[in-house]
C-alpha cells in the first residue's frame, strides 16, 4: 500500500547549513499493518510522517500510495488524496477551539465530495466512545477525550490509513494507554496504522517497528 523508494528531503534555513532530514529512505507498509516509526527528536521522523501523510513532497525518490505515484501531484491533488485516504492524529490534537466535538469531527467532510454525510460524525464519535459528548467543545473535554475526538475526526471519512504523530505525547499514561487501545482495535478491524513516536513503549503496540536515526531508516527485527 505504501511504497517509498530512495526518498530524500533537505531543509535549507536562513543563515544555517542545509539539513538533510531524510537520506535515501525506503519503506514498504502493507494494507492492514500496524507500523511504528521510532526515533529521537531531530532524527527526521516528522519529515517522514509529513511525506507519508502527503503534507510534504520529497526532493527526490518515489512514493507510491496504492500503486499511484504521488511525487508528480500538485497541492490540490494531494489535498484530495489526504482527504480520502489518510486520517491524521497529532500530538497537539489540533481541534478547533470553541467548536463542538461533532463539528470538529465533521471538518474533513466539509472538504469531501461525498453527497451523504449525515450521521457519519456521530458514528465516528461512537467508535471512540464519545457519542454522548458530541456537543461539548474542546475546552470542556479532558486531554484524552480531546485526542479521542481527534481520532474520530481521522476516522470520519473512512480512510485506509491512520497516521498518528506522537498521539500520546501530551497525555498522562492512563489516557495514553486508552488511546493506544483504540488504535489496536482499529488495526484489528483492518485499518492500516502508522505511528510516529520517540517512545519505545508506545511503539510496542505496533506489529512492526522502524527505527530512524539521522535521516536513515532500518527495520527493527523482533
Amino acid at each position: 500500500m505504501i511504497e517509498i523508494n530512495d526518498v530524500s528531503k533537505s531543509y535549507k534555513r536562513d543563515h544555517a547549513p542545509e539539513v538533510k532530514a531524510l537520506d535515501n529512505v525506503s519503506l514498504r507498509i502493507a494494507k492492514g499493518e500496524f507500523a511504528a516509526v521510532v526515533g529521537p527528536s531531530g532524527s527526521g521522523k516528522t519529515t517522514l510522517m509529513n511525506i507519508i501523510g502527503l503534507l510534504d513532497v520529497p526532493d527526490s525518490g518515489s512514493y507510491k500510495l496504492n500503486g499511484k505515484e504521488t511525487s508528480e501531484l500538485d497541492i490540490d491533488e494531494l489535498a484530495e488524496l489526504r482527504n480520502k485516504q489518510i486520517g491524521f492524529v497529532f500530538q497537539q490534537f489540533h481541534l478547533l477551539p470553541k467548536t463542538t466535538a461533532k463539528e470538529n469531527v465533521e471538518l474533513p467532510l466539509v472538504y469531501s465530495d461525498r453527497t451523504k454525510i449525515t450521521g457519519l460524525a456521530e458514528e465516528a464519535l461512537a467508535m471512540v466512545g464519545l457519542r454522548e459528548r458530541m456537543s461539548h467543545t474542546p475546552e470542556e473535554l479532558s486531554g484524552g477525550q480531546q485526542q479521542k475526538v481527534a481520532i474520530a475526526r481521522a476516522l470520519v471519512n473512512n480512510p485506509e490509513i491512520i497516521l498518528a504523530d506522537e498521539p500520546t505525547g501530551n497525555l498522562d499514561s492512563k489516557s495514553g494507554e486508552d488511546i493506544m487501545e483504540i488504535f489496536r482495535d482499529l488495526n484489528s478491524n483492518g485499518r492500516t496504522i502508522i505511528l510516529i513516536t520517540h517512545d519505545k513503549k508506545i511503539a510496542s503496540y505496533a506489529n512492526r517497528t522502524f527505527v530512524i536515526v539521522d535521516g536513515t531508516i532500518t527495520e527493527e527485527k523482533r
Binding site: G53, N83, F88
Partner: peptide, 8 residues
C-alpha cells in the same frame, strides 16, 4: 489542519 484534512 484544514489543509491536512483535505482543504484545497
Amino acid at each position: 489542519l484544514r489543509k491536512a484534512v483535505g482543504a484545497k
